[in-house]
Write a protein that binds this DNA or RNA. Structure first.
Lengths: 144, 144
DNA sequence: ATCATAATATTGATATATCAAATAATGATG
DNA sequence: CATCATTATTTGATATATCAATATTATGAT
């Protein structure tokens, strides 16, 4: 496989696009809101949307490993964005609630996230996006 | 943003597809060739294709950070897949050459990699892939 | 009521990503 | 040729990914 072939491989293009997007998004976030990562925001948002989720369910939603979720939540607690308390009925679990600071942060970053997506998708038609979405969903299905 | 909205966000679908593909590919590789990662293979292949590349150029080709390349190359040397010698004219650099073991490994895994790609893209038309490729390239361009 | 099994979360080890800082060698310029 | 900016690589710190192992609690079957 030559470098040209590598560059033209579909999965190379795929990796490159998601990495470039993440870099752009992370850079923009860091400039405006300091030391928060996209992954941390994703977890926070998931917990805000569905507070009753277990950590394992959160892992599924944000498409991460259980171990990663444990560590991200640790960080969020240390940063004062999550409050961790005993779960009332299941002592294996914790009751995690977003702090006021987390709510504020999510509200603040929301427009930035929308703007990032808009930048990334500009100049692409709805129809093309729909097809790309279908292709990506099919890949996920094929690899599952 | 509700969980439904998150699930339907284009970049969510994008992340999910690449992660699922990587997991499938890594799992298949591990079963057949033991402890080698896709990233390590990518670096090896790039160095085989263009032996004259500097580490920085390799980083560009495989779309990784300089620091990551340093560490991946360290690993490959420790594993006996790369040979590291002084560079004849530039003492900042090293002359890295693939060992026989690396050549053999690349040859062995090649069919498996092709098979993985085929699995992932099965049931998707050439036309759809072409459009998806165009969309992804445009995203990369927009975020650069 | 007990016990095996399942569910939930954590931890350890290793690999990779990212940013910033440090090292070291090279090249250009006065 | 001495200095200085640039280039190539490495290192440190922190975050995340993945796999395996562990700990603890809950549940279901007997």
């Amino acid at each position: 496989m030559t470098a040209e072939k590598l560059n033209s491989t579909f999965f190379y293009v795929l990796e490159k696009s998601i990495k470039t997007y993440r870099q752009m998004a992370q850079r923009n976030l860091a400039q405006e809101y300091g030391a928060i990562t996209i992954d941390q925001l994703l977890v926070l948002q998931a917990m805000k949307d569905q507070p009753e989720l277990t950590q394992q369910q959160i892992a599924l939603v944000v498409f991460k490993d259980y171990a990663s979720i444990t560590r991200i939540i640790d960080l969020l607690v240390r940063k004062g964005l999550l409050h961790r308390a005993d779960h009332p009925t299941d002592r294996r679990r914790f009751e995690l609630t977003l702090t006021r600071a987390a709510d504020d942060l999510l509200q603040q970053v929301h427009p930035r996230i929308l703007k990032n997506r808009k930048i990334a998708l500009s100049g692409i038609s709805e129809e093309e996006i729909a097809i790309a979405r279908k292709v990506l969903a099919k890949i996920t299905e094929n690899c599952s």
